[in-house]
């Protein structure tokens, strides 16, 4: 497999809102601290659109916007394990009332590709876009999909991965305690800001996933399926050469070989 370069990165999580705040923690220079996650207001969206959007959609749009600094018209891969649980809760609640009624806006926001659709409109991007899930390994599957798209289109691809906690009563069914999102631009060519190149393979031998080097991040890593990307983000931010093992399907691991 050809090496694929990671040329841009963004992150949004409690205590890690944006690269400026996240970099010292991901470099191990500061301990991670559990702080309240702020309300995001992605400026790419008009105010009236922003009001119609849930925190889940705004989380995805924020990291997509920050990662795609030079070109917003890229083909995109959206990966989320559980979809918009706030919408799921509201719709199921509405359906348990008499008469049953669903808000039209909530219904079109309920599709798994709602963030992708809003992103295309906001970014004015008519390129192909997909929205996928493989449960707790959704970040790995998004990375695989993005790499196959770079290889087949020979164009840069934007990967956006995100999950947001549920409210009651779904919070007891879904193991997400913190918001977490990350996005990156993958490319066949290296640019000046490149964080290194990756090669992917599915590995059936390795028994455990990589853990964060900054041990204060362990709690966050286990708080959200997408936060399993943290050991990879640490490697990329420090521009290190390392192999990272991420959760993948059927207890296998996705081996990500990062090189500089």
């Amino acid at each position: 497999m050809k090496a694929i370069y990671i040329n841009s990165l963004s992150i949004a999580a409690p205590g890690l809102v944006g690269l400026e705040q996240a970099t010292p923690v991901l470099k191990g220079e500061q301990a991670w601290q559990s702080v309240e996650f702020p309300k995001l207001a992605p400026q790419l969206l008009p105010a009236n659109e922003r009001r119609r959007m849930t925190n889940y959609i705004k989380l995805a749009i924020s990291v997509a916007d920050q990662a795609s600094t030079s070109d917003k018209s890229l083909g995109a891969v959206f990966a989320s394990s559980y979809g918009d649980l706030y919408i799921t809760d509201h719709i199921c609640n509405s359906l348990s009332q008499t008469p049953k009624f669903i808000s039209p806006t909530q219904f079109h926001n309920s599709v798994h590709n709602a963030p992708s659709g809003y992103w295309a409109i906001a970014a004015k991007s008519t390129a192909a876009s997909t929205s996928l899930s493989t449960g707790d390994s959704s970040f790995s599957s998004g990375l695989l999909e993005a790499v196959t798209q770079v290889l087949s289109t020979e164009k840069d691809i934007l990967l956006v991965a995100y999950d947001y906690p549920a409210t009651a009563p779904l919070d007891k069914c879904v193991d997400i305690s913190e918001p977490f999102a990350t996005a990156c631009v993958l490319s066949l060519t290296k640019n000046n800001n490149s964080y290194g190149s990756i090669k992917l393979s599915v590995n059936n031998e390795e028994k455990t996933c990589s853990q964060c080097r900054n041990q204060s991040l362990n709690q966050l890593q286990n708080s959200n399926p997408i936060a399993q990307s943290l050991p990879l983000l640490e490697t990329l931010i420090t521009k290190s050469t390392n192999s990272v093992y991420l959760p993948y399907l059927n207890d296998s691991k996705l081996k990500v070989e990062v090189q500089q």
Binding site: V111, H112, S116, T130, S131, L132, S133, T134, L144, L249
Partner: peptide, 21 residues
């Protein structure tokens, strides 16, 4: 749907669920 299909068929390779309406 993916987990069920893979386990029902005894498959352990790569996979995805795409949900774009």
């Amino acid at each position: 749907l993916l987990d069920y299909t893979q386990q029902s068929l005894g498959l352990k390779g790569v996979g995805q669920v795409i949900s774009t309406a």
